[in-house]
Nucleic acid binder design. Structure first.
Length: 428
RNA sequence: GUGACUGUAGUUCAGUUGGUUAGAGCACCUGAUUGUGGUUCAGGAUGUCGUGGGUUCGAGUCCCAUCAGUCACCCCA
């Protein structure tokens, strides 16, 4: 018999995991609300062309990592590999610019890229992120970058490194690439093999090379982008840095920080943590002042970031020992079918009227086995009911922690919870 | 797409130069306690040794292929 298993690079989240995921998601929702950002949810798939034009045909994402197919109607569709393009599409489609000149949006979502899985990289993975659409001013950059920083601070992630750079307007991209190639042409023999091929097809990525000898060559000979920035670009960038200083956000101005997606302009940034291994970027983002126009909207400046949730978990050092326990308030130990009937009735009443989490035995197990289950479920109380108790119209209430137990008349059960009880649940 | 390493019970892992019936801790189940968990004690079940082929009298162990996982490259969150 064939055993099915989840697709390579995808993960099941079991109850022990989802408790934590929900906590993290709730924290993100609360955080975003504090900054006045509204949640946006877009469909899991879009027209392939949206990503091809938004992210860029030449990028690895579009050229080899997308899950794309032709549907029965002949439309070319793609599971979303990132969210800026869908959000911008939605922004234009629903005319959000007409409702307000500034739209602050955030999302928590699943993304799909067909890459070889490794630490901090999956084929279905999760990101949260924000898109602030409408402001060209540096204070918007500062707001977005500070939010990325503050949310990691809130989660208690340490060893944060914020890298920031300006890559200028799209107009200087081509001249810069040309200048970069020219500056390195005569030294290309000193570069590693991958860098030699990068020089031709993806020159900006040269700066990511980890080889010491390549770094040396680059430091010595490579033209950096700041030499081509316009006065306005420079002024904008300096203002962003000034705001960050004022907010006491530490950063490194990394003139080698470039981002892979075509739509970025001016400010780009990245937050990394040493905890993560080779894929050390927790989040990345930047300005994309031309994308709305590119998609047929009015010229509208924007900036955002995207943050990997799985990578956040790695940075948080979550393991089995600090995972929260599954919780219930009451485990109903029921002996015999009459007892089960009564237990169901009482359980339902407590759930509805008192908001108490009650689990009723459904395996007809021995009392010993049921008690063990109560313990495993981390129940605060075991309610024990059998023929004797039914005859006396009582149930036995055992406090698991102390081991004490008392008989309580069935019609007085809800009084146990009449005042604020010492609830087990994670919400209170 | 490329490379390295790893696949043995639910889980974490032992398993000698190839040798009979493949083990341990934890978890699970039963009992000690006829209706009382978490501690203790006694016992119990559990495996197509990832899969397929090959070498051999004999393969968990050696060889080949394949699949899966992990990490790294490329690239990205």
């Amino acid at each position: 018999m064939k055993k099915f298993q989840s697709i390579k690079g995808t993960k099941d989240l079991l109850p022990e995991d989802t408790i934590l995921w929900r906590e993290v998601e709730m924290a993100i929702h609360n955080f975003m609300q504090l900054y006045g950002y509204g949640e946006i949810r877009t469909p899991v798939f879009e027209q392939t062309e949206l990503f091809a034009r938004g992210i860029g045909e030449g990028t690895d994402i579009v050229s080899k990592e997308m899950y794309s197919w032709i549907d029965q109607g002949g439309t070319n569709l793609t599971l979303k590999p990132e969210l800026t393009a869908p959000v911008v599409r939605s922004y234009i489609q629903h005319n959000l610019s007409g409702k307000s000149p500034i739209n602050r949006l955030y999302y928590i979502d699943s993304l799909f890229r067909r890459e070889r899985p490794q630490k901090g990289r999956l084929r279905q993975f999760h990101q949260f992120g924000i898109e602030a659409i409408g402001s060209e001013y540096p204070e918007q950059d500062a707001e977005v970058i500070s939010m990325a920083y503050k949310i990691y601070e809130m989660f208690g992630v340490d060893e944060l490194v914020v890298k920031i750079n300006s890559i200028g307007s799209p107009e200087i991209r081509q001249p810069y690439l040309q200048a970069l190639r020219e500056s390195l042409e005569s030294h290309s023999d000193k570069l590693c093999k991958t860098c030699q091929s990068r020089l031709g097809k993806n020159a900006l990525r040269l700066f990511d090379c980890k080889s010491e000898s390549c770094k040396g060559v680059l430091d010595k000979f490579a033209v950096t982008i700041d030499t081509l920035l316009t006065e306005e670009d420079k002024k904008h960038f300096q203002s962003v840095l000034k705001y960050l200083d004022a907010m006491k956000i530490p950063y490194i101005h990394d003139i080698k920080l470039v981002r892979g997606l075509d739509y970025y302009t001016r400010t780009t940034f990245e937050i990394a943590s040493r905890k993560l291994g080779a894929q050390d970027a927790l989040c990345g983002g930047g300005r994309y002042d031309k994308l709305v126009e590119e998609f047929g909207g009015k010229p509208t400046p924007a900036i955002g970031f995207a943050a990997g949730i799985e990578r956040l978990f790695i940075a948080l050092d979550i393991d089995d020992t600090n995972k929260p326990l599954p919780l219930t308030d009451v485990y109903f130990v029921a002996l015999g079918d009459e007892a089960v009937k009564v237990a169901f009735e009482i359980a339902e009443k407590l759930r509805l009227e008192k908001g108490i989490a009650v689990t009723v035995e459904t395996l007809q197990r021995s009392m010993k086995a049921q008690m063990r289950e109560a313990n495993r479920n981390n129940a605060q109380f075991a309610f024990i009911i059998g023929d004797n108790e039914i005859a006396a119209n009582k149930i036995i209430v055992k406090t698991m922690k102390s081991g004490e137990q008392q008989e309580v008349p069935i019609d007085k059960i809800d009084e146990l919870f009449s005042t604020e009880h010492d609830c087990n649940c994670s919400d209170c």
